[in-house]
């Protein structure tokens, strides 16, 4: 049976198939090792599971189809982060229904311009959050950031990447990374304050 099958198989084609299987196996091994971080990045970037799921899948398909260009001496997670971020930004650009937040646009956090939000920096209401409140607050606060700030701060504080690694993922100079991370934190701090106020005043009303 096996002998007959081998007779039928064109050796060249057989080689193609096994090479492909080897490539797939190699990709899956790397993915199993690094996938959690990348999926988490997708979730935090997209803001919900459904979008994260779509984003993650498209990233994997794209990554696999360009797997030859992956430099094996470089970290696989950074490579995937980069593809994911590009897929995300492309999608946002394509999607005309969504307006891309910029520093000029009013903040979705409180409807105030970013400059105004950045100005105030007192108090720290973060200690007032419980664990459950935190999950929701973090996601909401992140959603209010301009995409590039969001990416930078997620990669830095949630994924633990160095500025060097972030610069590579985001294709920008180190100084830009530093500034994006910093601005993101200032905006998040303000967002946490606003969300906390909303939450606690809502609680008092009930």
């Amino acid at each position: 049976m096996i002998e007959r099958k081998e007779e039928l198989l064109d050796p060249k084609r057989f080689q193609d198939i096994s090479e492909e299987s080897f490539r797939q196996a190699e990709f899956v091994v790397l993915l199993k090792k690094n996938g959690d971080k990348v999926y988490n990045f997708a979730w935090r970037l997209a803001g919900n599971e459904q979008d994260a799921w779509d984003l993650f899948q498209e990233t994997l398909m794209k990554a696999y189809s360009h797997f030859e260009s992956y430099d094996k001496s470089r970290p696989f997670d950074s490579w995937l982060f980069k593809i994911l971020q590009n897929v995300y930004l492309d999608e946002r650009r394509r999607d005309s229904r969504r307006t891309v937040a910029s520093l000029d646009a009013p903040s979705p956090i409180s409807g105030k311009p970013w400059e105004e939000i950045l100005a105030g920096t007192d108090l720290n209401p973060l200690d007032r959050f419980t664990k459950e409140e935190n999950v929701d607050m973090v996601q909401k606060a992140l959603a209010g950031l301009p995409p590039l700030y969001r990416s930078a701060v997620i990669l830095c504080d949630m994924e633990g990447l160095s500025y060097d690694a972030i610069a590579e993922v985001m294709d920008c100079p180190l100084g830009t990374v530093r500034s994006r991370v910093h601005q993101a934190r200032l905006l998040l701090k303000k967002a946490f304050e606003d969300l906390s106020d909303t939450f606690h005043s809502g609680k008092q009303l009930q």
Partner: peptide, 24 residues
């Protein structure tokens, strides 16, 4: 700033859906 960083660092993480990776 340290507090903001801490809140993000301690925020829960999601894992990729394993069954999809198996079938990739």
């Amino acid at each position: 700033l340290r507090k903001v960083k801490m809140v993000l660092a301690k925020a829960p993480k999601k894992s990729m859906p394993m069954e999809w990776i198996q079938a990739f």
